[in-house]
Write a protein that binds this DNA or RNA. Structure first.
Lengths: 161, 161
DNA sequence: CCGAGTAACTTGACGCTTCAACTAAGTCCG
DNA sequence: CGGACTTAGTTGAAGCGTCAAGTTACTCGG
């Protein structure tokens, strides 16, 4: 905490503020769309989407947590709610009886399938309609550079669409 | 929700996932640093930082809310907690007695001043150490393009450092 | 100048996230 | 084997954000 520390340049400040605006506003915008159209939070959508792509629509709780950058506790609470709504079921794993595996139900699968198009449309509208092709690849490089520091193991493939 | 909708291209998907990783992980990383070093959330830091730069260290609640992209309700709750901790005080505005003005106390000012260097250092480490000068200006342009859709009035200068 | 409408907050309840236990099961090794 | 340690997950309490409702004050047309 020395006084002679390196401050941000003017350019960096502008970039920083613009990035923070996106980071703060984007999740809310996505949540609003998903909540309105499918009664799902962004996080719940992510959970269901990951399951929908997994073999047998099934994943261990711990894998599912890692994939969504979630604590096990958070996932556990959300999974209980999703189970109550009939979107997933959980059962003890036969191999390792500490483990619990979550499976997407048919109703859950239907839910994700119906939610996906609207979600993707919103993503396109918010992000890609604003960007040139060059900017899209620049964005990928920049975001990946930042991400490399935040998530060194790249454990987070994040919700696929 | 038609079936023949426009999906994302492979390039767009990669950019999208990288961006989402940043959007999900960055707030947590910043919160961790601030919480650890100054017992502040990112949002609280933003509130105090905005006040620290305002004339007389004073702003109306509604302005403060807008500047931090917050609902008045959220700000009101946070302001109560900050007031309890002695970082700010609130008092009725003389001109318009519906309004409430928040003022940063000396203790609050000290708190922000002490928190800022560590926060900026973490931002530099997470973001700018990873990027070339060209990438910084590209980032600004891209983030601004996305932001233009999320926050058309650009009401959000976001936490200055 | 007075009543309807609106603006600026605050408050309380509810839902979600986090954190700190806690349970139960697997693993390691002496 | 058996005790110590680790791993997987759940649970309950506490904290924060959101939403709807309430309060007080300003404003503006008649």
């Amino acid at each position: 905490m020395s006084e002679d520390q390196k401050w941000l340049t003017v350019d960096e400040q502008r970039a920083w503020r613009a990035l923070m605006a996106v980071v703060v506003l984007l999740p809310g915008a996505l949540d609003t769309q998903l909540q309105h159209d499918s009664h799902l939070s962004n996080f719940e959508y992510g959970v269901l989407a990951m399951l929908s792509e997994a073999p047998d629509r099934t994943l261990r709780m711990s894998q599912l947590a890692t994939l969504n950058d979630s604590s096990l506790s958070r996932l556990s609470h959300v999974a209980r709610r999703l189970e109550e709504r009939g979107s997933i079921v959980r059962q003890q794993c036969a191999d390792d009886r500490r483990a619990n595996i979550a499976t997407l139900t048919d109703a859950g699968m239907t839910l994700v399938r119906e939610a996906a198009p609207g979600h993707v449309a919103r993503v396109r509208e918010l992000i890609f309609d604003q960007l040139s092709g060059d900017q899209v690849s620049e964005l990928e490089q920049i975001a990946d550079a930042i991400r490399s520091n935040l998530d060194p193991e790249k454990r987070m493939p994040t919700y696929v669409n």
